[in-house]
Simulated scan of single mutants.
Amino acid sequence: MADRLVDEAEWIRRCAQWSEHPEREKFPPGEGQVTLTIDEQDPKNPTEDRFTSKRFHKALSVTLNSVGFRSEPDGCGQGPETTGRRRGGPNPGRSTAKERGRGYGAVSGEPVRGRTDTGRRHAMTYDGSAGPAALLPLLRTSVERLHVSARALTDEDVRAPSLLPGWSRAHVLTHIARSADSRSRLLVAARTGAGLAQYDDEAQREREIEEGAGRRAAELAADLRGALGGFLTAAAAHPDAAWEVPVRWLGAGTRPVRRAVGSLLREVEVHHTDLRCGHRPADWPPFFVARELATTAAGLRERDDVPGMVLVADEDRVLRPVGDGRGPRVSGPAAALLGWLTGRAGGHGLTLDPPGPLPDVPAWRS
């Protein structure tokens, strides 16, 4: 038996030599036969339901915990005269309306010559099935990063302009806080049946922002922490059966309250960037980027003012046609694509096929 094992081992060795140097040695003819016997039954496909909420939440938790977040409050805690240029982006103090974001399209007209970004690529993880409770851990992490930036701001800093035209950093911080409060009202409405709306009207929303924007930095940071903490507490205690209850959204009619968590995550991440504190689209969590890129592309397909193009993220290479889908293919990191589509980045890191200027993207609707 031992001699046979030696012979078979020698035969395998000579076969390996032949595969590496076929010109030196012919395949050894008739020098033994190797039979592999596996004492296991043939594999069978499982018959039970393998996709369960327990498995999904466990996988999502692993995904979220594996993402390395960082907070770089560049410009926060400094006066506006020393903030300088954002790395990888335009000078926020001199940015055009298109570059600043809300209500404006992304930068267009500049030829894209090639991608220079060499940063890490994260896998796309969003499949559309994440429920509100599953998004709460990610929202908590995003909120804590925002608090770090808000605490670093001085009274002088909060008076400085944000990336949004006509708004200071104080306006942005107040807006985020009131957005959290408005969603807390919707949770109460869904849970109790009270006829509460997100806002009475657009005028109420604008009035609350203007009234709160004149406060000092410490007051703004404390208000932000209280409003976001209140929402997180209410959302964590919200009954599972009440997430589908329809409530009255400003500008969106009656829709399920389940949108509250995901939409607040969008408010926190995107407006954190608007603070000009060094929080760039490249810092947005990969799961958030995947989720928002999917919903943003879907929204653009429903509009008739969008030029034809195909969006392709490096992470998944999925073709996302928008407009009539007959224009150029715009490729790059998912965060760069989303930053460009939302007007929070100028398209650095994106490539076009055929080469040319970035299409003129219409105003982003959050």
Score class of each variant (00 low, 15 high):
residue 208 E to L: 15
residue 151 R to V: 08
residue 251 G to L: 07
residue 237 A to T: 11
residue 188 V to H: 09
residue 194 A to H: 04
residue 252 A to D: 11
residue 217 A to R: 05
residue 214 G to C: 03
residue 210 E to Y: 08
residue 173 L to M: 14
residue 233 T to A: 15
residue 196 L to R: 09
residue 215 R to G: 03
residue 251 G to Y: 12
residue 221 A to K: 12
residue 235 A to F: 09
residue 189 A to G: 04
residue 162 S to C: 05
residue 243 W to C: 06
residue 154 T to K: 03
residue 258 R to H: 14
residue 191 R to M: 10
residue 218 A to Y: 00
residue 187 L to S: 07
residue 163 L to M: 09
residue 257 V to R: 11
residue 237 A to V: 08
residue 166 G to P: 01
residue 150 A to N: 02
residue 253 G to N: 11
residue 248 R to T: 15
residue 232 L to H: 11
residue 255 R to L: 15
residue 174 T to H: 01
residue 242 A to F: 02
residue 153 L to S: 07
residue 165 P to T: 06
residue 153 L to A: 12
residue 199 Y to I: 02
residue 225 R to V: 14
residue 198 Q to R: 06
residue 154 T to P: 03
residue 164 L to Y: 03
residue 153 L to K: 00
residue 177 A to M: 09
residue 156 E to S: 12
residue 181 D to L: 11
residue 190 A to V: 04
residue 192 T to K: 02
residue 162 S to K: 02
residue 192 T to R: 01
residue 150 A to W: 00
residue 175 H to E: 08
residue 227 A to E: 11
residue 240 D to W: 13
residue 191 R to Y: 04
residue 190 A to R: 01
residue 253 G to E: 11
residue 226 G to D: 15
residue 189 A to L: 08
residue 151 R to G: 01
residue 208 E to Q: 15
residue 166 G to I: 04
residue 163 L to H: 07
residue 215 R to S: 08
residue 228 L to S: 14
residue 211 E to F: 02
residue 192 T to N: 06
residue 174 T to W: 00
residue 156 E to G: 11
residue 237 A to P: 01
residue 258 R to I: 00
residue 186 L to Q: 10
